[in-house]
Simulated scan of single mutants.
Amino acid sequence: MATHGARRSNVRPLRPVVITGGAGFLGANLADRLAGEGVPVVVLDSLARPGVELNLEWLKERHGKLVAPVIADIRDAEAVAETVRNARAVLHLAAQVAVTTSLEDPVHDFEANARGTLNVLEALRRQNDPPPLLFASTNKVYGKLFGASALGRSRSRWEPRREEHKQGCDEATLLDFYSPYGCSKGVADQYVLDYARVFGLPTLVFRMSCLYGPRQFGNEDQGWIAHFLIRALRGEPITIFGDGRQVRDALYVDDAVSAWLAGLHGIDRLRGRVFNLGGGPANTLSLLEMLEHVERLTGRAPEVHFDEPRPGDQLWYVSDTRALEQATGWRARIGLEAGLERLTVWLRRHVVPERSGKAAAAAFREARA
């Protein structure tokens, strides 16, 4: 494996890194970085999410035999066990990813997120020498965090009233699962940590905030930054749930990939730990502020509709990433303006080309290139 400071003892020659959900947004970017360094990658994905088949074709065309697809569902314990049997590491991203979908079908949400993660953990526990497992958790495990009384409201955003909160939420923040999605991901999060503590598996958890960047086919339920840009570029209205002052920290996907690989390469030191991963206080924006970016980047003010707030929505969430920075030397290096510019360029080229008819269809197919 290409090093980034890794010790040779962590390398398992010829064995692949398995990425569950590897055709998704973050998974495809992780697979691309690893394969670009000569590391064989197995992409386990059910291809259920619209657009991800384009990511898989893109990976295959870029890297050929270094990327091996396994089309299977994370709920299939037998398929999971067979796929991870010879892995040098497992990056577990496969999940049901939307709060809204979890409200519509809590059983499916639990089976995908909680049971699917347990399938991966059990498959690894049965091995004589279990490989590292890195897990994609979420900031939703912290629940709503702040009510309106603990926050101040400006023209465009909510902000904590207490100064010590403005650095963001650290890993000591109390867990408060909210919504079926928060519960299922929270259960998985705790199982991954407990399998390190009880069974000695080399596991690591990232509780992630908003990620954005190329290969993201955002929709209303997940990937909101890309979704806003896609809707505006198509001249379609944007719906905001709540007052639009909700604040998140946003992390460009290249920085997220670097954080995951820093965690993988330092797994001997970091096993059993959890890290919050996001853009941090320097890279925050509200939904209303994102609309201003959209107008600047697309040259048009989008039509906006407002609807009722969604259950479990956090009025303010910002990641305190200092623990990860101190443990690995990682930093978020791509700021919001630069990252949003890069995403807009990619969306114009691959998702919403400024052409019509056959030319537009051909340009959309360039997403495979």
Rank of each mutant, 00 (worst) to 15 (best):
R15F: 02
L201P: 07
I334D: 03
V274K: 07
K358H: 03
L193H: 07
K185I: 14
S356F: 02
D76R: 01
R248V: 06
D307V: 02
G168R: 08
S179E: 15
A338C: 00
F25S: 09
L44G: 10
V107R: 12
H92C: 12
T203K: 10
G213N: 09
V97A: 15
R271S: 15
R197L: 14
D194K: 13
L229S: 10
L251A: 02
S46L: 05
E292K: 09
R296Y: 13
L14M: 12
G339E: 00
N86W: 06
S179G: 06
V42C: 07
L93Y: 05
R88V: 07
E325H: 01
R365F: 11
G116P: 03
D45A: 12
Q246H: 10
M1C: 04
L66G: 03
A77H: 12
Q167V: 15
A31R: 02
V304A: 08
V84D: 10
R12D: 03
R333M: 04
A360S: 10
E308F: 06
G312P: 09
L285V: 06
L251S: 02
V192Q: 13
A338W: 00
L285T: 11
P302L: 13
R125G: 00
Q314W: 01
L133F: 00
S209L: 09
L204K: 10
P69D: 07
H165R: 13
T328C: 07
V198D: 08
L336E: 00
F146T: 06
L14H: 14
P180E: 14
D243N: 11
N10A: 13
G329E: 04
Q314N: 04
D307E: 13
L193N: 10
R125L: 08
L287T: 14
A188Q: 05
A31W: 02
R197D: 12
Q246P: 00
P302K: 09
D176I: 02
W224T: 11
W158H: 14
T344S: 03
T83G: 04
G51D: 04
D221Y: 14
R75A: 09
V187E: 14
R157H: 10
E53C: 01
L229A: 11
R215D: 02
F110R: 07
R348N: 05
V198A: 04
K358T: 14
D189L: 05
V198K: 08
N55I: 06
L285G: 03
W224M: 12
R271C: 06
L233V: 06
P160Q: 11
E308L: 13
Y212R: 02
R365L: 15
G152K: 14
H227T: 08
S149I: 12
P131G: 04
V99Y: 01
I19D: 10
C183H: 15
P281H: 07
Y178A: 15
N86A: 11
A367V: 08
R231G: 00
V18D: 04
W158C: 02
A282W: 05
E78K: 13
L336R: 01
I238M: 00
E37G: 14
M208H: 10
G242H: 03
P131L: 00
F199E: 09
L59C: 09
D105F: 08
R115M: 13
